[in-house]
Design a protein around this nucleic acid. Structure first.
Length: 901
RNA sequence: GGCCGAGUGGCGGAAUUGGCAGACGCACGGGACUUAAAAUCCCGGGUCCGUAAAGGGCGUGCGGGUUCGAGUCCCGCCUCGGCUACCA
């Protein structure tokens, strides 16, 4: 009867831990900074389908790390919570009328039960959900910090971390208001401030699906059609909240270098931020004579905002200005109308309309051929006064740079392709070095024009056809021309990022409401002026709603809220209307790691002393799918809070590890449609939580992608059975020790095996190499299970090192071995190096690099003795017989190699 | 197209700084226990030649190289996976 029975022991110990608050951390502010250890899992979205086997992978890894750390006396923070806002609960509400909160709570209930079933040692007293009003109160509060902040890019300052930085998020009250704005009065000042806030409003395209009557999230749009029902989706501009993450682009990039993150993830973030340097240049498009404009510019200098008579472009290759043979502006560019001459109006309008229907994906991915139309206007090249035709084409994106380019077809592949298509001149202005051979892409574009073979060249060389600059090397030319343009007010060096400002609003019910009011005029129309909700009034709760059906127009769901929620009157009598957009799901997950340190604080989002003690997170484990967005957004918010003095460390996550995805048994990604989903509940009911945990760690390296195997689960389950029988008499009716277990002194051999295992497992846990740690414990069990005499002095330390991996069986064995308290508070065994030394070692002897014999010598045998021992071996003698030994390599303790001829 | 990662038995994988390739587990074959089965235990194994012995040849995606010695380092390819997508 007392066979290994996971059902009986797992539940029992889970209750024990809960009742004894084994893993609950006292709430006092600790002081011993060296021992703090904050280990965080990426908290899950509690979906309706319950836990996936991918979740316990990272969660088991961190659980092993923290259980090990606690036994080593470290002060561990290891919490869990829920990223609980999200579309599915709202969609369920549309279908059934069930309030999203109800669905969310049910799903959380399931997830909590499943996680507890796996025996993770979370401090559940710190559980939080992003949907709790007491949580999102502070999400809204952080939003108000963003709203109250502008970025002073030139500000030099010393942070609390002692690092000197340039650029700081500062209170909006500290923004210097230009005189001309001040003169325009209070409203103008407020609007000026609003334009500079880190949270600001701008028109941005949304995915509007007329057939479904709703705005869709990007992930709900597939190939321009809605995921549900495959209806066409339009891109229409809508008033949206944006977060000025681009202000922090530089710091987000440069401060990556101190983080202990996988290099590949850092690179991913760097590429995503996509910093490039170049210059902005103004091309005259106004009527005035070019010369007088240029003279005037030399006087006034470079204007911050371009006036209507110039077309401003961004280029990374200002050295190719002489080769600009046409210009391109994006279809959305504000100067499109002004630049289009009457005869081209209809063609340009038609082109822009067609472009507006395409998503950015359609424009790039599907459109193989370049397209565009001529506006009929010309711009004047500032370096030589030449007129250059201006085209509209959708290969130029309004969202990057200035939304306009100078096209240099000879030295830009896209421009080259376009020029060939529309028969525009191609003028080489860079001579390639002699060693140049066209790259694959360059060669692919080679075209015959008027019997001449032309190939674009996008590299660096020397200037040609560039007037006085001929012969200048590219790098030098870039610097010189940028300076020349700057001194005459025609250009300016500039930095650009692929990173865009963060579109922060959604038109949903089930997200954090914005703590913002809009002022109304006497007709009830918005004036465009805004007021922040006062901090005492937070949280701004969700309005009560009966009906969660979409509005049927692009208006946000919350615009259907009751009047009491939507409207109020300010103390000064101004009528106000609430912001009706809601925040995206990312918002809550941007700062949850902070709240875990002080989850119940009702005065502050976190107590500064606790923040100082616990942060940064020492180890953060989660899926690589969050490599860019979540991790970048969190870092951005953290830096804002840092600038505003609310946190003391510039980065939130010191060490990051990505777990690899678990595939189905057929080696494919798990999905319902493929029918290869493994349900953790089933695995636990058949084999137990310890077996599931152990298997997930035994499958292979944590960071690697690996397929599931039910046979593999059985394998570790059998191992747990062997461990059980090593200690317990499984043929007895009662739970009692195996007869082989004794109080006697262990043998030297037993001690050596034990201490080898302790050493290997300890090292492996620190390296997060759990699969090898488990094989070492299997080897121990294979050995010890065969010993007729199994001293407790050997079994007990083994049970302790097994416990982080399989805590339930370990607690049970510990108990049967005669202990009354949980082993979680026991000290981690230390290995004794002196016990590891073997008396003799086996040394391979090679002849010409091939192993021909193995000899046994006392460990510590020196080089000469080792060589003579090898030479004395009969097989070696046979091998060396009649041959000329040229050289002998001996590595003590390793090998001997005879090089012969 | 660009970037990143990975290729080791039938399978998952192991192998400190270059030093016995295949630990550990799965699957498989043989055996013990049993009336039988399950469970458990024992034995076997990269591959080819050789009689199951001794012994030897070949083996870490492919082709070269460095080295006494390469899964590991260098050069050139191939295949698979992930991310990204006209960023001027």
């Amino acid at each position: 009867m007392p066979r290994y029975d996971s059902k009986r022991i797992e539940h029992k110990w889970q209750e024990f831990w809960e009742e004894n608050k084994t893993f609950v951390l006292p709430d006092d502010t600790p002081t011993d900074a060296a021992q703090k250890f904050y280990v965080l899992d990426m908290f899950p979205y509690p979906s309706g389908s319950g836990l996936h086997v991918g979740h316990p992978e990272g969660y088991t890894a961190t659980d092993i790390v923290v259980r090990h750390a606690r036994m080593n006396g470290r002060h561990v923070l290891h919490p869990m919570g829920w990223d609980a806002f999200g579309l599915p609960a709202e969609e369920h509400a549309v279908k059934t009328g069930t309030h999203p909160r109800e669905t969310t709570e049910q799903n959380i209930e399931t997830f909590r039960r499943q996680l507890k079933m796996l025996g993770f040692s979370y401090d559940w007293s710190r559980e939080i959900a992003t949907t709790d009003p007491e949580y999102y109160r502070w999400t809204q509060w952080i939003f108000l910090q963003l709203f109250d902040t502008w970025y002073d890019a030139d500000y030099r300052w010393n942070g609390p971390d002692g690092v000197n930085r340039t650029g700081k998020g500062r209170p909006i009250a500290e923004l210097t208001i230009p005189k001309e704005i001040q003169e325009q009065g209070d409203d103008a000042v407020r609007r000026y401030q609003d334009r500079h806030r880190l949270a600001y409003i701008s028109e941005a395209p949304v995915n509007w699906c007329p057939a479904l009557g709703t705005v869709l999230a990007n992930e709900e749009v597939i190939d321009g059609l809605s995921e549900r029902g495959s209806h066409p989706v339009e891109r229409i501009p809508l008033r949206q909240w944006m977060l000025r993450i681009t202000a922090y682009a530089d710091r987000l990039e440069s401060e990556l270098k101190d983080l202990n993150w996988p290099e590949s993830i850092k690179l991913l973030q760097r590429n995503w931020i996509g910093r490039s340097t170049g210059a902005e240049v103004d091309f005259l498009i106004g009527k005035g004579p070019f010369d007088s404009w240029r003279t005037q510019r030399t006087g006034t200098g470079w204007p911050e905002e371009p006036s209507d008579d110039v077309l401003r472009v961004y280029t990374t290759r200002p050295d190719t200005l002489y080769g600009a043979t046409y210009m391109v502006i994006a279809p959305e560019h504000p100067l499109v109308d002004q630049l289009t001459v009457d005869e081209n109006k209809s063609a340009v309008q038609e082109y822009c309309r067609a472009a507006s229907l395409k998503s950015e994906l359609d424009r790039t991915d599907l459109a193989k051929e370049k397209s565009g139309v001529f506006t009929g206007s010309f711009a004047i090249n500032p370096v030589n006064g030449e007129p250059v035709p201006v085209w509209v084409a959708d290969y130029v994106l309004i969202s990057y740079g200035t939304g306009a380019i100078m096209a240099v077809p000879a030295h830009d592949l896209r421009d080259f392709e376009f020029a060939v298509r529309f028969n525009l001149p191609i003028l080489p202005v860079v001579e390639p070095p002699d060693t140049w051979t066209p790259s694959k892409d360059e060669a692919a574009l080679t075209t015959n024009i008027n019997g001449q073979k032309l190939t674009p060249f996008s590299g660096m060389g020397r200037a040609i056809n560039s007037g006085e600059y001929n012969g200048t090397p590219t790098a030098e030319f870039k610097a010189v021309i940028t300076e020349t343009l700057a001194s005459s007010g025609l250009g300016q060096s500039a930095v650009n990022y692929k990173l865009r400002d963060w579109l922060f609003s959604r038109q949903r019910y089930w997200g954090e409401p914005f703590p913002i009011w809009h002022e109304l005029d006497t007709h009830g129309n918005q004036t465009g002026l805004m007021r922040a909700e006062s901090e005492e009034n937070l949280p701004v709760p969700h309005p009560h709603m009966e009906d969660f059906k979409p509005t049927g127009n692009p208006e946000p769901m919350l615009s259907k809220a009751p009047k009491e929620w939507l409207y109020t009157t300010a103390e000064d009598g101004t009528p106000l209307k609430r912001e009706t957009n809601s925040m995206p799901q990312w918002a809550g997950s941007c700062w949850y790691y902070l709240r875990f340190c002080d989850p119940k604080n009702s005065d502050q989002f976190i107590d500064p002393a606790k923040e100082k003690y616990w942060l940064p997170v020492d180890l953060y484990i989660g899926g690589a799918e969050h490599a860019v967005l979540h991790l970048l957004y969190s870092r951005f918010w953290h830096k804002l809070l840092f600038d505003r003095g609310h946190v003391s460390n510039p980065e939130p996550f010191y060490r990051l590890v990505n777990q690899g995805m678990i595939l189905g048994e057929n080696g494919e990604k798990m999905s319902k449609s493929r029918g290869n989903v493994i349900n953790p509940d089933d695995v636990v009911s058949e084999y137990g939580a310890d077996a599931l945990r152990l298997y997930e760690m035994f499958m292979g390296p944590l960071e690697q992608v690996k397929p599931w195997s039910m046979k593999g689960v059985e394998g570790v389950f059998r191992f747990l059975g062997r461990v059980w029988r090593m200690v317990i008499d499984d043929r007895s009716e009662d739970i009692m020790l195996n007869a082989a277990v004794s109080e006697s002194e262990p043998t030297e051999h037993q001690m050596r095996i034990l201490h080898k295992t302790i050493k290997a497992v300890s090292v492996d846990i620190e390296r997060l190499s759990f699969n090898t740690a488990i094989s070492r414990m299997m080897e121990f069990t294979n050995f010890m299970g065969h010993e007729d005499n199994r001293p407790k002095a050997v079994l007990e330390p083994f049970v302790l090192i097994l416990s982080p991996f399989a805590p339930h069986i370990a607690e049970e064995l510990w108990h049967v071995l005669g202990h009354t308290d949980s082993l979680a508070s026991e000290a981690w065994p230390e290995h004794d190096e002196s016990l590891l030394i073997e008396e003799t070692v086996e040394i391979p002897v090679q002849v010409n690099g091939r192993v021909r014999a193995k000899i046994h010598v006392p460990s510590g045998t020196n080089q000469t003795a080792l060589q003579s021992a090898a030479e004395a071996d009969s097989t070696v003698r046979k091998q060396l017989d009649g041959k000329n030994v040229v050289k002998v390599i001996t590595v003590p303790g390793r090998m001997v190699n005879f090089v012969v001829k």
